[in-house]
Amino acid sequence: MDFQYEVKGASLTIYVPRELDHHVASQIQARADLAVDTYRIQTVIFDFSETEFMDSSGIGVILGRCRNMGFAGGKVKAVHLKNERVRKIFSMAGLYKLVKVEEDQDE
């Protein structure tokens, strides 16, 4: 598996790796859906601390979680969006309107 994740209470944090493409996105999709069902997750958090590259497959996996969590009454957040490129892709895809982005305290 090419990424790490952590379950804390009803939150699932996905540590997005350096590059988020179709290869990684399909692994995140499978693992996240399993964790959400298993642990009754209410919030899925995408942590972009390490991420420098993201393509349209990354958008797909985030939108997919928004849709699934929406059915379950949960929500999706993105944190540590510090990379300029990742922010540009978020903005081009209109993700800022769909996902709650928490800015870092120290920024």
Partner: peptide, 13 residues
């Protein structure tokens, strides 16, 4: 497959 439909749009952009 959770395709966003943005692939060609990104190539063009």
């Amino acid at each position: 497959l959770e395709r966003s439909g943005m692939g060609f749009a990104f190539m063009e952009a």
